[in-house]
Simulated assay, not measured.
Amino acid sequence: MTDTSGFLTTHVLDTARGVPAQGMHIVLYAIDGVTRTVVAAKHTNEDGRTDGPILPAEAFKPGVYELVFHAGDYLRETGQAGDPPLFLDEIPIRFGINDPGSHYHVPLLLSPFSYATYRGS
């Protein structure tokens, strides 16, 4: 039997320094109307990825989710923050999952003054 369970992964690349963003705190929320429920919280490893999916197959289901990347803490730790207030601090990315059998990958490309994301593979 083929496993058709999906899962969610993420990673963070520090585009200003040209390296993976190690040690960034990321929180995943499930969104239901105005209610936000923490599903997972992880830190990125030396490759800028979480150790394992942030939402593994056994917990993966359709719905609206939000990844919150704690970029400000990372930028301060790497000496890139500049004077307060930070231009980027917490970066929320809200997205929908509608195919429970797919791999969803939501990365963050980060610099002190910009970020980008996309649905990867």
Rank of each mutant, 00 (worst) to 15 (best):
P53Y: 00
A71D: 05
D89S: 13
Y118T: 09
T117Y: 11
L67A: 08
G72R: 02
T4Y: 09
Y118G: 02
D47E: 03
I54T: 11
A71Q: 01
Y29C: 12
S102R: 14
E58L: 07
A59I: 00
A59N: 14
T44Y: 09
L88E: 07
G101N: 15
A116I: 00
V27C: 09
N45G: 05
V64Q: 11
T78C: 00
M24R: 03
R76H: 04
T35K: 14
L86K: 01
H43W: 05
A57H: 11
A30L: 13
P107S: 08
T9Y: 09
M1K: 02
F7C: 06
L109V: 00
L109Y: 13
G101L: 02
G72D: 08
I97L: 13
L13R: 02
P84R: 03
Y65R: 06
D47R: 06
F69H: 13
D32I: 03
E77M: 03
D47I: 00
L88S: 07
V19Q: 06
P62T: 15
E77Q: 13
L110V: 05
L55G: 13
F69M: 07
V39C: 10
K61S: 15
T35H: 12
P85Y: 06
S121V: 08
P84L: 11
Y29K: 12
P84D: 14
I54K: 10
D14A: 03
H105Q: 13
L109H: 12
E66A: 12
H43I: 01
T2P: 08
H43A: 06
R94W: 03
A59W: 11
M24S: 06
V34G: 08
V34A: 12
E66F: 00
A16N: 09
H103G: 03
T78M: 04
